[in-house]
Simulated assay, not measured.
Amino acid sequence: MTMPDSHSATPWLRFWNRGGWWKAVLVAAVYMALYLGASQLIGILFAGRFDVSDQFGSPQTVAITLLLPIAVGALILLAFAASLKWLPELFGRQPVKGKGWMWIAPVVVLLAAVLRVAGTDWSRYAVSVILLTFLSGLFIGLAEELLTRGLAVNLLRRGGYSERWVMVLSSLLFALLHSSNLLGGQPLLTVLFTMAFTFLFGVAMYLTLRVTGSLVWPILLHAITDPTTFLATGGIDVAGAAPSPLLTFAGLSVYVYLILTIIALFLVKDRVERRRDLTTLPTS
């Protein structure tokens, strides 16, 4: 894949094209600040029109507290990627091919989502709430995957990191994003559990990115994971006993993610070479 070389690119492009782990952290930090700021502003603008104690109790609450903030976040990330002229690269074919065993990741993610759909009491929710929640899930998948499996992975690869470190660091960054739940008043133990799960899920999404060869598939799988989890549990990042045996089976996917992560730490050894003209090519 060809990118602007160091002579023709602007200072803005040259800065980001060099990549690096700290630039991935910088992008994530600025994004989270803007996202949380947008959430606060939206909350002020629509004060009195939503009930945070029952986030899935009305379509207005879902739209204001979930859909609008993440839609703003997704647009911010798309605008940033467009400013770098990276959109064709981010949504194009991956520079390194996946291995056959990596297919376990998307299959398990999809199976867990199907089990949650089958085990959820949908009569608890209005149809409009369900539709808005899934629409929110699409923006969540777009924003979080574009940030972590798109921009962060690209910055790490441009920084010269091996794919093992790309996988670990991008998944760690994904987990750290969820530490912001502390600001919403969630208990520390719940937040730590969420961060541990999101690290493992991040590895599964990285493996999905590799084996499918496209960022689109992690986005879509992520887009069905969050809303089916929210509606199955009745809240966001809620930990507790599953009310249905099917939801219990779906919860077992975390152990598969753990095993996959351990396997991946040993088997993921590829590298995308960085050249002086800032063109990246996979090694043989």
Results as ranks from 00 to 15, higher is better:
L176C: 11
T133Q: 02
V127F: 04
Y255G: 15
I262W: 15
V268K: 05
S123H: 07
E89H: 14
S179Y: 13
F266L: 14
L247A: 07
L192N: 05
A74M: 01
L45I: 13
G57K: 01
S83Y: 05
S180V: 15
W12N: 14
F197V: 09
W12Y: 15
L87V: 14
A152T: 09
I104A: 15
H7L: 14
A143C: 05
A250P: 05
F174L: 04
Y206H: 14
A71L: 11
G150W: 08
A112C: 03
L252C: 15
A250E: 10
A242N: 14
N181M: 12
L67E: 00
L177E: 11
W101N: 13
V25L: 15
L252P: 09
G234H: 02
P59G: 00
R18S: 07
S136K: 00
V127P: 03
P282V: 06
R157S: 11
G73M: 02
L258W: 11
M32C: 04
V117C: 10
L265H: 11
L75E: 00
D226L: 04
T10F: 05
A82C: 10
L110F: 15
F230T: 00
L77D: 03
A223V: 01
A28E: 08
V25H: 07
L151T: 04
P59R: 00
A239Y: 12
L41M: 11
W165P: 04
V107W: 06
G160V: 11
L78E: 00
P227A: 12
K85H: 15
T148S: 08
I224N: 07
T190N: 14
T228H: 05
G185K: 10
L258I: 08
D51W: 00
R149A: 03
T280S: 12
L132S: 02
P4F: 14
S253Q: 13
L207Q: 07
G240E: 10
L247F: 07
F15R: 14
E273F: 12
T148R: 06
A112S: 13
P59H: 00
R124F: 10
F197K: 08
Y125A: 00
G141N: 00
K269P: 09
Y257I: 10
V27C: 06
P11G: 10
Y161S: 07
V108P: 08
V117L: 15
S6K: 09
S179H: 05
G43R: 02
L34H: 08
F91A: 02
T229Y: 12
E163D: 15
G37D: 08
S171V: 01
A28S: 14
F139W: 00
D237H: 13
L278Q: 07
A105C: 06
W12A: 15
V211K: 06
T248R: 10
R124Y: 03
